[in-house]
Design a protein around this nucleic acid. Structure first.
Length: 121
DNA sequence: AATCTGACTGTTG
DNA sequence: CCAACAGCCAGAT
């Protein structure tokens, strides 16, 4: 049985996007644009949204992926649920905006390029 | 291969 | 702040 064949979504991009979203820790968020950028396609925010729409995986915290500027973005019509999930993780939301975005925005650990220590002698 | 579809985003009025 | 528009993009038809 060939198995897996009907699944056309085995592309590197969507796979990369999903693995990135999977790493967003509770209490943190990333915008569609952020994820797109991390996935190597800085202008594919819209495409990321489409991928989120289809991800129905329990291991993918798609509720932590929001729109730019702290706006919530969509959640399959249940934006209320998305808001609840975020609040439950400690995210503070005022109106329809995440507050203190800079403090909860997820920052993947980037490799520091042999940062030299300046030693004074 | 061409067209359509949006959980997007930045600009403009 | 909100609505309309115009780019942009990967997936699905």
């Amino acid at each position: 049985m060939r198995a897996v064949k009907n699944n056309a979504a085995a592309d590197p991009f969507s796979h990369r996007v999903l693995s990135i979203v999977r790493r967003i820790p509770p209490g943190h968020v990333a915008s569609y644009g952020d994820v797109a950028k991390l996935a190597g396609r800085p202008r594919a925010a819209r495409a990321v949204g489409n991928i989120m729409r289809g991800c129905g995986r329990p291991d993918v915290p798609c509720h932590r992926v929001i729109a730019a500027g702290g706006r919530l973005g969509g959640y399959g019509g249940s934006e209320i649920l998305k808001r609840s999930l975020l609040v439950a993780e400690g995210i503070i939301i005022s109106g329809s905006r995440v507050r203190g975005l800079d403090r909860v925005r997820w920052r993947p650990v980037r490799r520091v390029r042999s940062q030299k220590l300046k030693v004074r002698s």
